[in-house]
Each structure stands twice: as structure tokens, then as C-alpha cells.
């Protein structure tokens, strides 16, 4: 995994000021949505905390950072697109779906098919040897569970409880 390459306009100060003119702001929001998704995907980052520091939202080389209002706007736009979700009532923690749940489910199914796997614990999928180096490694637990549920509905998987949450697992029936 190489360094994330920022687009050239990431160094333009106005990119960090919420633009008041409608057309300009819409374009700005689009550019930010795309950048957030790409950045999170690159860094396998699933949750952005509005109140915490987030590297993307501050460009120290030009000494500019997004205001709280701007962050809210951009994340809100992602949520409207179905590419993010609030994790709490207070709208402070935001789950970024840089890959849709549906696509995660497909990816998981393809993986078990290719490797002929029938049984895996959630932990193994997230950080096990089998998934190491694949796109599945490091998947958010919540996202994984929802992906598995989609497979359950399709009759391709069944969740089972283990003795502890670490042992919760999935039985796949890929074919």
C-alpha cells in the first residue's frame, strides 16, 4: 500500500472554506465526497469521528482545516447518497461505506468460493491468515456482520454463535 496521493486542489485554500455560492458549493461537496471515499478506502478507515482529529480534514502545509459545519455538510451529503451512516443519535460518529454492504457480501462470497472455505469465524475473516493481504483484511466488524446477513438472506451463509463473541462464525454454502 503506497502513500495516498492527494488531488492538486487539496492545496488550494478555498477547498477548505465552505463556499457560499450554490453552484460552487455543490461542486465543492462532490469533490469532497469523492475524496473522503477514496481516502478512507486507501487507509481502510471505516469510522470518522466528527469531534476527533481526522487527517484528511486538515492540510497543515497550507494551514487550513475544515470547519465543523463543513465536515457536517460533506458527511451529510455522503449519507444522502447512501455512502455513509450515522452510528449514533448525536450524529458524531459516521460510518463510511466506501464499499457498499452489497459489494462486501459479493467480495466475501467470491473469496470463500475461490479458496473453498466452508467455515470461518468473524475474527478469522477480519484478521486471520487466510484473508491477510486481501481486501477483506481489516473489515469493520459491523460491516462484516451486515454483509454476512445479506448472504444469509440469499441462502449462501449461516451465522452461528460461538462460546464467546470471538468465536462467532459463519458457515458458507457457496454453491
Amino acid at each position: 500500500m503506497g502513500e495516498f496521493t492527494f488531488p492538486y486542489f487539496y492545496n488550494y485554500p478555498p477547498y477548505f472554506t465552505l463556499q457560499p455560492v450554490k453552484d460552487t458549493r455543490e461542486k465543492q461537496i462532490q469533490l469532497w465526497k469523492e475524496l473522503i471515499l477514496r481516502f478512507c478506502k486507501h487507509h481502510k478507515c471505516f469510522v470518522i469521528d466528527l469531534e476527533g482529529e481526522f487527517a484528511l480534514f486538515e492540510n497543515t502545509s497550507i494551514q487550513r482545516k475544515l470547519s465543523f459545519e463543513a465536515r457536517e455538510q460533506f458527511l451529510g451529503a455522503l449519507i444522502a447518497d447512501g455512502r455513509a451512516e450515522w452510528l449514533d443519535k448525536n450524529h458524531r460518529k459516521c460510518l463510511i461505506l466506501w464499499r457498499r454492504i452489497q459489494d462486501w457480501a459479493d467480495l466475501l462470497l467470491d473469496f470463500v468460493r475461490e479458496n473453498g472455505i466452508e467455515l470461518m469465524t468473524l475474527e478469522e475473516i477480519i484478521s486471520g491468515d487466510e484473508t491477510h493481504g486481501t481486501e477483506l483484511a481489516g473489515i469493520d466488524r459491523g460491516v462484516l456482520i451486515r454483509a454476512v446477513k445479506i448472504l444469509e438472506q440469499r441462502g449462501r451463509a449461516a451465522m452461528f454463535k460461538g462460546s464467546s463473541t470471538d468465536d462467532d462464525g459463519v458457515k458458507f454454502s457457496p454453491n
Binding site: F9, Y12, P13, P14, T17, Q19, D23, T24, Q30, E34
Partner: peptide
């Protein structure tokens, strides 16, 4: 377009309009 930074309100060429999201 504007930059509301520490130096006060400053204006720049509106590069947003020039950028296409597809190729940006």
C-alpha cells in the same frame, strides 16, 4: 471562490467550476 482563513476573506479563481469530478 473564497478562502476564509486566518488572513481574512480572500478570493481565488473559481477552480471548482473548471474541475470535472469524473477526471479530478
Amino acid at each position: 471562490c473564497r478562502d476564509d482563513g486566518e488572513d481574512g476573506l480572500r478570493f481565488f479563481h473559481n477552480f471548482f467550476i473548471d474541475i470535472s469530478v469524473a477526471t479530478a
